[in-house]
Nucleic acid binder design. Structure first.
Lengths: 161, 161
DNA sequence: TTTGAATGCGTGCGCACGCACATTTCTACT
DNA sequence: AGTAGAAATGTGCGTGCGCACGCATTCAAA
């Protein structure tokens, strides 16, 4: 039973490993835009006022929270976003999409979406696609926050060292 | 239509980003075994004579072909595999599972499988799991080899120059 | 046999990524 | 007000990873 149980997860790992480089290269070749940048621009474009704090970005985009800081630095250096400080909470820092950033994103989106369609969506039925989205959303909702497992053992307590 | 089309892929990316660190940590906490090591041990254990060449390992396991070399070095230093040369083709190098490696893998397997079950499989129905495995297998079979897209355009190769 | 291309592999190098820690600012409680 | 703790962010550092390249070997053709 283990074999069939693990099949879905194992295949997911392989698809990710095989497809991400392909989509990343296509996007870079067409728009000179790394996938990480695209993801950040996407979330900013979707957010109200095209503005998000670093923490929100780290939570919404597929980027580590600590990494967001440097990615935003790079994006700001490229003129695609601006750093702003929040007058109501001077700890937090906002990243806001610039016009150039929005235009760059809108140019890149069709490329990326087309890649997803050609390599991923077109290979399955609409029903399969919906099933995947639904099932994986349930998985995502139940995954523990952070890469946690700080207490002793993963499965057995195993208190003593 | 784009939104729902991309949903499956986007969720896959998030699940991967969220779950891989969790499973990796659980495995490391319980067995001091990185996921990459586990994957290599798994393929070796499944292979005939517990032996595979570097190229085969790179193709079967979720590890870059060039990275295999260093991973095998580390595994050999840990006594879990041995490096052997192929007398029939002196270019190739074999990695063979040792008894210690096999034992280590067999100890780790239940931990990893249980993690997959708790965080992934148990969150969906058996039908959903089968659908995911089947659909993603189709995607995998159609993905272009290598991270390719060397020629100019991203979409059509267009044979003639 | 000789020669050129192809295959399999290992390594130097640079990049991306996340962790642990320090810093600044906010919040709650006395 | 004053203080301890929490929250949000930025940074030094080590690590994993893949690419470009070079070396050894094998195959194919002349």
């Amino acid at each position: 039973m283990s074999d069939t149980d693990v099949a879905a997860w194992a295949t997911l790992l392989r698809v990710h490993a095989a497809l991400v480089p392909v989509l990343d290269r296509e996007l870079q070749a067409a728009c000179a835009l790394p996938l990480t940048w695209y993801d950040v621009l996407l979330e900013l474009n979707y957010a109200p006022d095209c503005r998000l704090s670093m923490g929100e970005l780290g939570q919404k985009a597929v980027v580590s929270r600590t990494r967001v800081s440097r990615v935003v630095d790079a994006l700001a250096a490229a003129g695609l976003v601006t750093r702003e400080s929040n007058p109501d909470d001077r700890r937090s820092a906002y990243a806001t999409l610039t016009d150039a950033g929005r235009e760059r994103f809108r140019a890149a989106a069709p490329i990326y979406l087309d890649g997803i369609r050609r390599h991923f969506t077109d290979r399955m039925t609409a029903g399969e696609s919906r099933t995947i989205a639904g099932a994986l959303a349930k998985v995502l909702a139940a995954v523990p926050p952070g890469g946690a497992v700080p207490p002793g053992g993963a499965v057995p307590p195993a208190v003593t060292g």
